[in-house]
Design a protein around this nucleic acid. Structure first.
Lengths: 252, 252
DNA sequence: GTTACACATTGATATATATCAATGATTATG
DNA sequence: CATAATCATTGATATATATCAATGTGTAAC
């Protein structure tokens, strides 16, 4: 599959004199769980470009582009993927409000993935050089950045377990649980949320065939564990889902 | 499988008046590829506890232990793994000279894995608090730490691709190539090296059955791509190995 | 409103790899 | 030195999931 549509062109949302500040936003994991003081948040605020809108299907970044900023998702959702030489897509992750995009590009100073909006979304832009300078001063910011990265490492390791050792049903269950947890952590409903990505994205991400994903979803409904109506997921039996995701012995 | 043997007890190697300095050691990725000045390296040196020996089978850390330091591998090798509730082992990674252990524990301040010496090895210990303080002062050190973590994120993503999308032969080839590259980057031979881990470790890490790994090794020899004599690997046809690891289309 | 196109579901079949089983080789233990 | 224990190899069989194929459904295009 080739690149669809035109290259991204990020459009600044009209601010309409509504000056939203980081203090009230409380969404990015960079500010919130950390112990930044008000004045520290203010300094962070100064370097952040706030509330940029990205239309559905547009790119936040593309492979090969120079890395300059991190993005914090404000609303909407994104998928990241790589393209192999043969042109096949490898979905590497999904991003939801409160999450940081671009951490993996720090080391090479170049983006290694395509990041595409799954719906019309908005992000804050964090120029990395300035962020880095600031973190020299602010111990808690430095700590928080390392923490976020370390956290990502842990998440990746978990995903690794999932993909290498779990069967299809376990992967699907773990995927839904992970989404549920991420939404919960950011103050959204953990019981009911939207799958903004396609079945094909999910299948690709989980290393499964799209037909397998479809069948698994059907089965989860039959077993009355989750209810999935097209895009809308409702988790009915959370415990059963956990059990399904965790059980790695019986299946082997 | 339960925990084998006793808990680690790290023994200080007799220094024998040989004061090895980081300046001459040049092994850790923390110091070397970075642009630290001599005086900066000296400051780093002051906080590092050098050359601790770890016997084969002993633990560098265990799940649940408090995170206090990172370790830089000097010699030997380690494996990291988790234990599920049911007691089965999940090998999460291998560590060789020059590589840093413990980055994933930063976020939770607690070790989430067991790290076990595959052979008698030695490490340098980097107290994290002091390292963090120092990185507030030294911009390049800060940069280097983020770079290392970002790099790990990239590596993990690659591994993720490998485990979710590649078949057994591709995984095995990619595993050997990745080892080869890592050894090369640290100045060791890329053509010939030791598999210090068991077949079972490899199989577990790659999400394959041990028998499959064995068969693949046999096949790689038959095809005259690599020569594996018990633990010793010799890469004969590097190009063929790359081709094998990369091909993800033909197999699907 | 009709046509086209991406997305999703369901069934039949093929295949890669796990599992089971037997044996050999190497390393540790008394 | 003998015996056990771990690790590795090889073959036969079972099974989970990919692939192929057909159909349905919703959304965009004209």
């Amino acid at each position: 599959m080739a690149l669809d549509q035109s290259v991204s062109k990020i459009v600044k949302v009209e601010s309409l004199h509504v000056k939203v500040s980081c203090q009230t936003c409380s969404i990015s994991q960079l500010c919130i769980p950390s112990s930044l003081t008000d004045s520290e948040v203010s300094r962070l605020e100064e370097i952040i470009h706030r509330e940029t809108s990205v239309q559905k299907g547009k790119f936040l970044c593309q492979t090969g582009e120079k890395f300059q900023s991190l993005w914090a998702v404000n609303s909407g959702s994104f998928k990241s993927y790589t393209l192999s030489e043969d042109g096949d897509i490898n979905v590497t992750g999904f991003y939801f409000p409160g999450e940081l995009i671009g951490l993996d590009a720090i080391s090479s100073s170049t983006h290694r993935t395509f990041v595409k909006a799954l719906e019309t979304s908005s992000v804050c832009t964090l120029p990395f050089d300035k962020l880095d300078d600031l973190s020299g001063d602010i111990r808690n910011l430095r700590k928080q950045m390392l923490k976020i990265m370390s956290n990502e490492l842990m998440d990746d390791q978990e995903l690794l377990m999932l993909l290498s050792r779990k069967n299809a049903a376990e992967r699907m269950a773990a995927f839904l649980l992970s989404l549920s947890l991420r939404f919960k952590q950011r103050g959204f409903s953990e019981k009911s949320f939207n799958l903004t990505m396609t079945r094909s994205d999910i299948a690709n991400y989980l290393g499964l065939a799209i037909e397998t994903v479809s069948r698994l979803i059907t089965k989860l409904q039959k077993d009355e564990i989750v209810n999935i109506n097209d895009k809308l997921v409702e988790i009915i039996d959370h415990k059963a889902l956990i059990k399904l995701a965790g059980a790695s012995c019986e299946a082997h």
